[in-house]
Amino acid sequence: MQPFVKLEGLTVPLDRANVDTDAIIPKQFLKSIKRSGFGPNAFDEWRYLDHGEPGMDNSRRKLNPDFVLNQPRYQGASILLARENFGCGSSREHAPWALLDYGFRAIIAPSFADIFFNNCFKNGILPIMLDTAEVDQLFNEVQATPGYQLLVDLEQQVVVTPGGQSFPFEVDAFRKHCLLNGLDDIGLTLQKVDLIKAFEAKHKSSQPWLFN
């Protein structure tokens, strides 16, 4: 996993609540058996005017000019500004894979759905929860200011606006450690192999039917 330490990036506002993972990456693209290549189909139904299917040459498809990600001023954005309950619905990790492949490394919203929030950390994306009022302010500023860039500093746990205003955010210490160092969870867990084996033996003796 790519470490996440500090990111200064163009910010794009996606002004709708309850954006679900079906919208982030529609079902027809879930048939892939790979982890990569989902970026061109991120937000496919909102982003293109035609119906997308796997295997299409996306560079030849007609873009929906009204969709915010297609506006010239937001090209190259790496920070996504969103509304409440972002990433709700399906547990598909294809959603963070698509966002990462598109180029997003951080997402700022007032709240996230649990499974999506968790999946982001496994893929080097930092989901940041700020107060609704703070998110409102960022929406106003980004819409009013072409080229609006935010600075996200994970070590210091702050989002800094171009005007120099700092918004602190919370992040779980273990997740922060893994993200800062790009650590693979499985490797860490396997350092506790003796504890797992001991638990398993005890569990098996008390509930043997679980091991039939």
Binding site: R35, S91, R92, I115, N118, I186, T189
Partner: peptide
Amino acid sequence: AHGIGTSEVEHVLATQCLVQK
């Protein structure tokens, strides 16, 4: 019982455990 992402599917396959809060 709850849903997990694919990274966690791999984690459970490999370790029989899940990192949880």
